[in-house]
Nucleic acid binder design. Structure first.
Lengths: 218, 218
DNA sequence: AAAAAATGTGACTCACTAGTCACAAAATTT
DNA sequence: AAATTTTGTGACTAGTGAGTCACATTTTTT
C-alpha cells in the first residue's frame, strides 16, 4: 500500500509520477526496472519514492492494482449471459480491451508487459499467484460452458482452461511476432498499443476463434 | 565460440565447468545468472572463465549450441514420413524428448528454461531470432500438412503455425502449473525433469492432441 | 510570528555484477 | 636444466541497483 504522503499528493503530480513508473515497468522486467532512472527522469529525489511507497514491490503492486481496477471498469460490464455463445463473449472482451487500450495507453502498456514482467525471479511468488487466479477464471468459464452442454466434456477442465488462457496470450504474442503491433515503439511515441490497428486485432482474434472453436465446441 | 584453451581442457574438467553453468542458467534468466557465483561454487578463478570464453554471452551461446546438438541427436531421427499423421509424429517428438531428458537431465533443464531465460533485455535479439526459427519450422510443418490435404486451409498458415508452437509450449507450462513436474526441485535433487513422470507427460500430450486435433485436421 | 508537522533531498551505505590485468604456477619445448 | 608457452589467479575497476538518513524546505497549526 502506498503511504498517506503519496495519496495526499496533488492529483497531477501523482499522475506524473505514476505514469513515469508505469512506463518503466512497461519496458523492463521487474528486476531490471530502475527506480534510480525514473527519479532522475522525473527530477525528484530518490528518497521521495520511499516517502510515497514502502519499497519497489509496494510501488509495483500499486501500479498493478490501479491498472487492473481501470481495466475492470471496462471488462466488468461484459457478461457471458449477454452473448449467444462463448466465442461472441470472448470476442467482446477483445473489443473492450481495445477500448481500454485506446483510452488508457500507458496502463494498457503496463498490463501488456505484466506477464513478461512477472518472470523476474524476485517476484516468482506473485507470478504464480496471478497465474493461478487467471487460469482459475478460465477454468470456471469452461465449466460453465460444459454444464450448458456447449463445450465438449471428454477433455479435463484443467487442460481446456489452461489452453484457453494460452490462446488469449497467444493472440497478443502473435500480433507482436508478426509486428502488427510494436509495444516498445508505441511507448516511445506515446501512443496506444493498438492505435489504428483495430481491424488487424479483430481479424487475428477472429482467425483464432475460427481455428480453436472446433476444439472446444461440443 | 569458446577459446582453444577451453577445448584443450581435460574432458572431465570441461564437463564439470559446463555443468555448473548449465545449472546456473537453468535456474535464472540470463541477466540474473551470476558468473561470480558459479566460479565460487567451482572453486576456480573468475579470470579462468575469460580464458575459456570471450564473455558471458559467448559462454551462454556455447551452452545453447551444445544442448541443441545433443537434443538433435535424439529428435533428428524422427521424420514425419514415418508416421501416418501429424499427431503421431507430434507425439513421437515428446516421447523422444522424454528419452533426451532422462539421459541428459542437466541439458534438458537448461533447454527447459531457455525460453524464459531469453526474456532478459540484454539478449532480446537472440530471443527474436530463435523464436523466428522455431515458429518458421512449425509453419513449414503446417504447410506440409495442408499440401497433403490433411490440415484445413481456411486459416492463415502463420496463425496455425504460431498456435502449434504455442501448444508445444503450453504442454510444458501446464505440467509445471499443475506441479506434475517441478524443474527447480529436480535441479536441486539432481534428477531429470520427467523422472517417473512419463505416464503423466504422455497423458497430457494425448489430452492436448485430442483437444486441438479438430482445430487443425481437415 | 513562532512552533510543529509534513514533505522533499541527495550523498551515502551495502551488495552486487561483468570484465581486466599484472602476476604466479604449471606444463611443454628446447 | 633452462627457456618458453600455456594455463590459472584474485584483487581490482567501473558500473549497476535498492534502500537509508540526517538535514533542508515547505506547509500547517498554534
Amino acid at each position: 500500500m502506498p503511504k498517506q504522503t503519496f495519496l495526499n499528493l496533488e492529483g497531477s503530480k501523482r499522475k506524473v509520477i505514476t505514469n513515469a513508473f508505469l512506463r518503466e515497468f512497461a519496458i523492463k522486467p521487474y528486476d531490471q526496472a530502475s527506480l534510480s532512472d525514473v527519479v532522475k527522469e522525473l527530477g525528484i529525489a530518490k528518497g521521495s519514492v520511499y516517502q510515497y511507497f514502502e519499497g519497489k514491490l509496494d510501488l509495483f503492486l500499486y501500479l498493478v492494482g490501479e491498472c487492473n481496477q481501470t481495466k475492470m471498469k471496462y471488462i466488468g460490464e461484459i457478461t457471458r449471459k449477454s452473448y449467444p455463445d462463448f466465442w461472441a463473449f470472448f470476442r467482446a472482451l477483445y473489443e473492450c480491451g481495445y477500448k481500454f487500450d485506446s483510452e488508457n495507453p500507458l496502463q494498457s502498456h503496463f498490463l501488456f508487459n505484466l506477464i513478461e514482467n512477472l518472470n523476474s525471479p524476485s517476484i516468482k511468488h506473485l507470478h504464480n499467484e496471478m497465474l493461478s487466479q487467471t487460469v482459475k477464471a478460465f477454468e470456471e468459464m469452461v465449466e460453465y460452458e460444459i454444464s450448458a452442454a456447449l463445450f465438449r466434456e471428454d477433455i479435463p477442465v484443467k487442460v481446456m482452461g489452461f489452453m484457453l488462457y494460452k490462446v488469449g496470450v497467444s493472440i497478443q504474442e502473435q500480433l507482436i511476432f508478426s509486428k502488427t503491433i510494436e509495444p516498445l515503439k508505441s511507448i516511445e511515441n506515446n501512443t496506444s498499443v493498438f492505435l489504428n490497428k483495430k481491424e488487424e486485432l479483430m481479424k487475428t482474434v477472429d482467425d483464432y476463434i475460427r481455428l480453436i472453436k472446433p476444439s472446444f465446441d461440443k
